[in-house]
Design a protein around this nucleic acid. Structure first.
Length: 257
DNA sequence: ATGGTCGTCTAACGA
């Protein structure tokens, strides 16, 4: 089973890129973040016509918004983290073919020690609590999405410049480590990867051309799924298109499941 | 050099 994740930064603008990418890569499941569309405007028909009959979404106006697009039935949907009273639509958790899938748009955090940064840390705490609970019920568990955290310095094009900045700062990296310690692995690092592998490049300053990116989009796997993982990749091709998302799609290939 | 570029019910704001 092939499972993918992509922060599209507006599904309305990026629909053709998404449809082309689905045709080319044929994943079983694609999780989207930053759809920026209310549920009534979700482009259901175009995605169903592309062979994805099972679709779930949790959208809002202007900001955030997540969706799961699947070839297989989507069961036991959860759209809110317990204990977090949050109107922002950042979470879509569901079971597909026996895999518990978390599709996540982690808060950006704006600036270190801002209110938004504190919200990010609180959000990650609530995520970690719920992940622990879900891991006790589901051996095959996967978290994917825009984590807005670069796990290590090798995930940052210029660690000196980024030191102590949001997306890289110690407290958010520690929060990610705490999540991983529940029994999850960063699937990307199960395999040899090219140096300077990133998933996001700022629109400004010709960042993509300069390879000035960060790897902040992740697929985390429980031990049971890590054993089944055949590959974990970032596809930078869509970032080269006209009017691209600032993020690249990422995906894993799982044996069996 | 504190900018720059996108996307959003075109105006600040968020990323």
């Amino acid at each position: 089973m092939k499972i993918a994740s992509w922060n599209v930064n507006s599904l309305k603008v990026r629909l053709e890129h998404v449809l082309d990418w689905l045709r080319e890569h044929n994943p079983d499941v694609l999780g989207l973040q930053e759809t920026k569309t209310i549920d009534e405007n979700f482009p259901l028909e175009a995605l169903k016509a592309a062979g994805y009959e099972h679709i779930a979404y949790s959208g809002q106006k202007t900001y955030n918004g997540v969706a799961l697009i699947s070839k297989h039935p989507i069961e036991s949907i959860v759209t809110d983290l317990p204990g977090l009273d949050d109107p922002q639509r950042r979470v879509l958790i569901a079971t597909i073919k026996g895999v518990r899938i978390f599709n996540l748009y982690v808060p950006n955090g704006s600036e270190v020690d801002s209110d938004k940064y504190q919200y990010k840390l609180n959000w990650l705490k609530a995520l970690t609590s719920f992940t622990k609970e879900e891991l006790s019920k589901h051996k095959k568990l996967l978290l994917m999405g825009d984590f807005n955290i670069a796990p290590e310095d090798r995930d940052v094009h210029d660690p000196e410049k980024w030191k102590d900045q949001v997306l890289v700062s110690d407290k958010e990296r520690a929060a990610l480590q705490k999540l991983l310690k529940l029994g999850l692995v960063d699937s990307f690092r199960l395999f040899d990867q090219e140096d300077r592998s990133y998933s996001w490049w700022d629109y400004r300053m010709l960042a993509f051309r300069r390879k000035a990116g960060l790897r902040i989009d992740l697929v985390l796997l429980s031990d049971a799924l890590a054993k089944e993982c055949k590959s974990s990749c970032i596809d930078i091709e869509p970032r080269k298109l006209e009017r691209p998302s600032d993020h690249a799609p990422i995906f894993v290939d799982l044996k069996a499941s």
